[in-house]
Simulated assay, not measured.
Amino acid sequence: MERSLIIVKPDAVQRGLIGEILRRLEQRGLRFIGLKLMWIDRELAERHYAEHRGKAFFEELLSFITSGPVVVGVVEGPRAIEVTRKTMGKTDPAEAEPGTIRGDLALSIAQNVIHGSDSPEKAAYEISLFFREDELVSYERAIDRWIMG
């Protein structure tokens, strides 16, 4: 079972898209094992985006992700990272396929409504930034055998 962090970004929260975004991930068969509404402070944002430190857009990233509340979650399922990323669509919404979250709900690369982990290592790191292990609840749903084989 693989896990991925997702962040429903401030633009999506302000636009009332939380339910729509979570619904799309759940409909794919992913199971939410952690979920919370929070406001990311600068220190946490810097740790989350550490790989981009020194890049021209770093300050813009920090300013945006700390500009309003977000919903952070952990999804679990077979190939959860790949499934989440395909469901999200390409980072640039102009290049994202229709039917993806970004392809349908976003217009700007700077405000692209959702973040998802891009590798198992990154997922483990990101999840540890936002959740303690005791905040994650693994469980089995009755439909899992139909979704996960």
Rank of each mutant, 00 (worst) to 15 (best):
P98E: 14
G68K: 02
S67Y: 02
E76H: 06
L129A: 10
Y139T: 09
R3C: 11
E82N: 00
S138C: 08
V83Q: 03
A12Q: 03
Y125A: 14
E46T: 05
R132Y: 13
V8A: 04
R47C: 09
E51Q: 12
N112E: 06
P10N: 01
M88W: 05
K86Q: 13
G99I: 01
V74W: 05
E140A: 12
G73I: 02
E135D: 09
W146D: 08
V83D: 02
A50Y: 06
V72Q: 00
G103Q: 11
Q27N: 12
V72C: 07
A45N: 06
R53V: 11
I18Q: 11
I40W: 02
F64C: 03
K122G: 15
R3Y: 14
E95H: 07
M148K: 14
G19H: 06
V74R: 01
L61M: 15
D104M: 06
V113W: 04
F57Y: 15
P69C: 08
F64S: 03
R141L: 13
E97T: 07
A80T: 09
E2Y: 13
E46H: 10
G19Q: 07
I18L: 04
F131R: 02
L105A: 04
Q111I: 00
E59D: 15
F57V: 14
T84N: 10
V113G: 03
A142M: 02
P120Y: 08
S117Q: 06
F32K: 06
F32Q: 03
S67G: 10
E135Y: 09
K55V: 08
G16E: 13
S138E: 15
I33T: 03
I81H: 04
I6W: 01
P98M: 07
A96Q: 02
A96V: 06
G34L: 08
Y125T: 02
L136R: 02
F131Y: 05
A110G: 13
V72K: 04
H52G: 11
T91A: 03
M1S: 14
S108T: 12
T87S: 04
V70Y: 00
A123M: 09
D11A: 05
E121P: 02
I127P: 03
A94V: 14
G34E: 05
R47Q: 15
E2W: 13
H52K: 12
I7S: 02
E140P: 00
E133D: 14
I143E: 15
E26N: 03
I101T: 01
K122V: 10
E59F: 08
M1R: 07
L107K: 11
V113D: 05
L107M: 09
E43Q: 13
S108D: 14
R53I: 10
G19A: 09
V72S: 00
G16Y: 10
V71S: 00
L37S: 01
Y49N: 12
A80M: 06
T84H: 00
I147Q: 08
I143N: 03
D92I: 05
M88C: 14
S119M: 10
K90G: 00
E76A: 03
L25H: 07
V13A: 04
V137N: 08
T87Y: 01
V75R: 01
E140Q: 12
D118M: 12
E97W: 05
E46S: 10
I6Q: 01
E20I: 04
H48K: 04
H52W: 10
V13D: 03
K36F: 05
F57G: 13
R47V: 09
W146I: 07
G77P: 11
A80D: 08
T84F: 09
I33D: 00
L35D: 05
D118A: 11
